[in-house]
């Protein structure tokens, strides 16, 4: 069944929920407890005028992106290793399961014992992203078409050519789907780590201090910053997935 496209659906939804937010804020009528969208927008505009706002956002973004990139790279390399070696798979598969099962708060407090607070959010993001990418990539490698691998063998493809022509396109949807899944996880775990460890120049620190000093408008404004950054990166990734799907005749919705 075809889904009917509603023009301006996103704008309509945004306007609707902003309206609901404004109504609830008006009903509560106490900015300290529940600021309305106008108050938050004013605070956001004021923050955006300060150099510190951009520096804090950039540093947090960098920390989270570094952790996510390291997690993605680590996950890919580990998946390649466990795909080739049963011993590695037997060793790492349970470990990845344990990492996924442990609550992020436990990890934050544990890792805080061993690493400095400035680097901790990056380490936490790495740990959260690693098993997700590993599991998706392992699935992708397992799903590589055996018939095409035989074709590569009889055609004498080099390892690099096989990786480029057979494995790469086979696992690309899994990889992009893993990246998309990791994105929300990276932001949530990264900011949570920042809130719990309050490193210098961090969105998490700003959230913590806003809560501490009861600056609820600031709390909302910084939360909006996290959401906007996450949505922008998600949008870029989605565009890449659709583009890949269109170019290669694959499903654009990941694996």
């Amino acid at each position: 069944m075809k889904s009917r496209r509603i023009p301006g659906k996103g704008i309509f939804a945004l306007a609707f929920w902003l309206g609901v937010w404004a109504l609830v804020a008006a009903a509560v009528d106490r900015e300290l407890l529940f600021p309305g969208p106008a108050a938050v927008a004013r605070r956001l505009a004021a923050l955006a005028g300060e150099g510190l706002f951009w520096r804090v956002t950039a540093v947090s973004l960098l920390r989270i992106i570094c952790g996510a990139a390291a997690g993605i790279l680590g996950g890919v390399l580990l998946a390649l290793g466990t795909d080739r070696s049963r011993l590695l798979d037997a060793l790492f598969a349970p470990l990845m399961g344990v990492i996924q099962a442990v609550p992020v708060a436990s990890f934050i407090l544990l890792v805080l014992i061993w690493v400095g607070r400035d680097i901790l959010p990056t380490v936490i993001v790495f740990l959260m992203v690693l098993p997700v990418v590993w599991s998706n990539m392992s699935e992708g490698l397992r799903s590589a078409d055996r018939d095409l691998l035989e074709l590569a063998q009889v055609c004498g493809f080099s390892r690099w050519k096989t990786a480029r022509l057979v494995y790469g396109p086979s696992i690309a949807p899994y990889f992009l789907s893993a990246c998309r899944a990791c994105l929300g996880l990276a932001w949530k775990s990264g900011v949570a780590a920042e809130v719990l460890t309050v490193p210098a120049q961090a969105i998490g620190r700003e959230l913590y201090e806003a809560k501490l000093y009861m600056n609820t408008a600031d709390l909302f404004a910084w939360t909006a910053v996290v959401a906007v950054c996450s949505l922008v990166i998600e949008y870029i990734l989605d565009a890449a997935i659709v583009r890949l799907g269109r170019r290669r005749g694959m499903g654009g919705d990941g694996a």
């Binding site: 018939d147 074709l151 022509l165 694959m250």
Partner: peptide
Amino acid sequence: YAFQEPRLLPWF
């Protein structure tokens, strides 16, 4: 080697 089934790379 021509396999019985074409085995074309679907993304190319």
